[in-house]
């Protein structure tokens, strides 16, 4: 997660209309239409989006800014793993001993090739996803990097053979 981009976030006065209640932002139909359109194509111009929705461009611009400022939505370029050279994706379960799961997870999260670290309930304490350009690199990451982190007791690796679907539509923003 790019925590630094949160720091760059603009802060603006709250727009009027739909807003927060019980600490949750309530989206209305206009917001949902914008979200749906931008899920399909994040590069569509505000003007075209406004025309398709039958509202004016300022409405789209204001709503979009409000959704972004409330940390509800972000429009980003998602990179294809294989096109960027990462042919190998390993979902790995981690068993932790003698150290807090959060601390071990934080250390694993520092590794650039680790794209997900999640504290889990079940047989493993953490579920992580590791990417690599080659099997050699994957082997190195698992046995010489992750396995050496204090508190990592056992790894339960698997390797994706063929990815059928990987389309993040949500994230902890």
């Amino acid at each position: 997660m790019r925590t630094e981009s949160k720091g760059e976030r603009r802060t603006r006065g709250k727009a009027q209309g739909a807003g927060r209640e019980d600490g949750l932002y309530r989206t209305d139909e206009v917001d949902e239409q914008i979200i749906a359109a931008l899920r399909k194509n994040g590069r569509v111009a505000n003007r075209d989006l406004a025309r398709d929705m039958g509202v004016n461009e300022a409405t789209v611009r204001t709503r979009l800014r409000r959704l972004e400022d409330a940390n509800m939505l972000r429009v980003v370029a998602m990179r294809d793993l294989a096109a960027m050279g990462f042919e190998y994706l390993a979902p790995v379960g981690v068993q932790v001993k003698g150290r807090s799961v959060a601390d071990v997870g934080a250390d694993i999260a520092k590794i650039e090739r680790v794209i997900t670290v999640n504290v889990a309930i079940g047989t493993h304490d953490l579920e992580v996803q590791v990417v690599a350009e080659s099997l050699d690199e994957m082997q190195h990451l698992l046995t010489s990097v992750i396995a050496k982190i204090e508190g990592v007791e056992r790894l339960f690796p698997s390797l994706a053979l063929r990815v059928f679907k990987y389309n993040p539509e949500w994230a902890p923003l």
Partner: peptide, 13 residues
């Protein structure tokens, strides 16, 4: 997975 420590959503296939 109960608690995301890291989740780089900018990756996909």
């Amino acid at each position: 997975g109960q608690n995301f420590i890291k989740h780089d959503y900018r990756w996909c296939s």
